[in-house]
Design a protein around this nucleic acid. Structure first.
Lengths: 114, 114
DNA sequence: CCCGATAGCTAGCATTACTACCTATCCGCT
DNA sequence: AGCGGATAGGTAGTAATGCTAGCTATCGGG
């Protein structure tokens, strides 16, 4: 639906990293993992996914390598140690973020700090 | 902390609208509501809040009016009908978004569609 | 023999939050 | 009297980043 057009900003990196948590994947498979794992919600254009993967590789969070399977080039990415640390941190960060947004949207008062 | 630097993108509008759900507020009070309602997490610079309020007003989601209290100018905003509809829609949207992101980050498989 | 699925890529655009700055009033402290 | 901080509003310009729209190429099936 792409209602999330702007909403993804800042969360895409974590999502990409998360798809590689259980092992290396190539770009196309990452796209599918995102689509299927979100019930079709995050059906991202390749122009979003590939540049983001390059960015994460440049940042040292992913390591990519070329291989050829059935004549098709594949670039397979795996998490680096730094990427794994980043993922853990961002997961925690997401929980805090989601909690804060939900609190504001639902009108729940934030627990008083005694 | 500002880890949320980019993460806010696309969610700021809903958050702003939500602070006006129980009645009109002026910009400064909106900032405080965001800060306090998020446990200090969303302590946004004025350069973020004021332009966003102008944007929402231009979009017809807010209506602003000037008043003077103790010599201080205040611009008070209230939700328009359209703004209220938008808020309801975006609230629902947030739930779906949060659910999808959480599912991907926690590795929960998305419920199969039977 | 062409189409769809698989697989990868890029240039340029648009959106939007942030940095860094400015103005002004009122109150409390020295 | 004067200064700083809280309150209240604002802007210009920058940086980040996801999307649009386009491209190349292989393989299998109709």
């Amino acid at each position: 639906m792409a209602t999330d057009a702007q909403a993804l900003k800042g969360h895409l990196d974590v999502l990409l990293l998360a798809t590689m948590a259980d092992g290396p994947r190539h770009g196309y498979a990452i796209r599918e993992a995102l689509r299927d794992g979100s019930g079709g919600r995050f059906d991202l254009p390749t122009g979003t996914v590939y540049p983001a993967l390059h960015r994460l590789e440049r940042a040292g969070l992913l390591a990519g390598s070329w291989s050829t399977v059935d004549g098709r080039r594949r670039r397979t990415y795996r998490l680096t140690d730094e990427g794994r640390r980043k993922l853990a941190g961002e997961r925690a960060n997401w929980r805090g973020f989601a909690r804060a947004v939900t609190a504001l949207l639902e009108g729940d008062p934030w627990p008083a700090t005694p």
